[in-house]
């Protein structure tokens, strides 16, 4: 039972990292300037690394004696978990699967997510589950940099030219509705808190808003909760496997080889 929760919880963390990595990697070779092409690819690489550690751990859990989950596909691996589940089994939040859009949208998505992930990993470092705690501790160093990099870009775009300011406002319009889900616990998140190894995401909200407001202030954007956004309806469901239409296409690309050549080794 606890193992089911731990497995689901770990998969949720892994899916978040992988899907955002996959999105960011679309920029490789197409960035606005070489130096930033390289920068966003670094973030992508960090996230793939996190996803791999987490999937490997989840595979270990699933492969351990008397598994009550999955099964029927033989030995689970990081790749079977990433490549052979369909949309409804993916547990990432809606935010990370949203399209790259322009540079402003990519930046804002990264800023929202990294700020959340930073707060989350800070707590997860203290998890009673040693493996999750260790992964969180290692990843936190990377995420600290992602927060710094994306914050600076939010400020640059917000306080840059009228065009960049406008584009950032558009991005906010596109993405704000997906931020609520970060702090609304999915079933397994609530269970993980009860079981003692999970982080209470609703408790991260205040600190997240504070950071967002601070950066928005520098970026000459209105406060996160102000500007009529207070009443905006928040989309949820991704963490429970009810995604936007985006994810199907992401998986179609991501999983193409494993689906076209079942069982092959690469």
């Amino acid at each position: 039972m606890t193992k089911d929760i731990l497995y689901n919880y770990t998969m949720h963390l892994a899916d978040n990292a992988l899907i955002l990595a996959q999105r960011n990697s679309e920029w490789c070779g197409h960035g606005p300037v070489l130096e930033q092409d390289i920068a966003i690819t670094n973030i992508s690489l960090d996230l793939i690394g996190q996803a791999r550690s987490l999937y490997q751990y989840a595979a270990e859990l699933i492969n351990a004696p008397s598994p009550s989950i999955g099964g029927g596909r033989g030995e689970a691996t990081e790749d079977s978990l990433a490549y052979l589940r369909d949309v409804r089994q993916y547990k990432n939040c809606l935010l990370v699967e949203q399209p790259n859009g322009d540079w402003a949208q990519t930046i804002l998505r990264q800023f929202f997510f990294s700020t959340y992930q930073y707060l989350l990993y800070q707590q997860l470092q203290k998890s009673t589950d040693d493996t999750l705690a260790a992964i969180a501790e290692k990843s936190l160093k990377e995420v600290t940099y992602h927060v710094r990099w994306s914050s600076e870009w939010v400020v640059r775009l917000g306080d840059g030219t009228p065009e960049s300011h406008g584009r950032l406002e558009n991005a906010l319009e596109e993405l704000w509705m997906y931020t609520g889900e970060l702090f609304a616990p999915a079933t397994y998140e609530a269970e993980a808190v009860t079981a003692g190894f999970g982080v209470e995401v609703s408790a991260l909200k205040a600190a997240w808003e504070q950071k967002v407001n601070e950066i928005f202030g520098e970026a000459t954007l209105p406060d996160a909760a102000a500007g009529g956004r207070e009443g905006i309806y928040m989309q949820t469901g991704g963490k429970e496997g009810v995604h936007s239409e985006q994810l199907g296409y992401i998986l179609a690309e991501l999983q193409y080889m494993q689906r076209a050549y079942p069982g092959a080794e690469w």
Binding site: S25, R52, W266
Partner: peptide
């Protein structure tokens, strides 16, 4: 990059293409 057949290959390819940017 998007279609690399394993996570390891994806990371390697991404790092390789990024090197070319460098």
């Amino acid at each position: 990059i998007g279609r690399a057949p394993s996570l390891k290959r994806k990371a390697i390819l991404l790092a390789k293409v990024q090197d070319e940017a460098g």
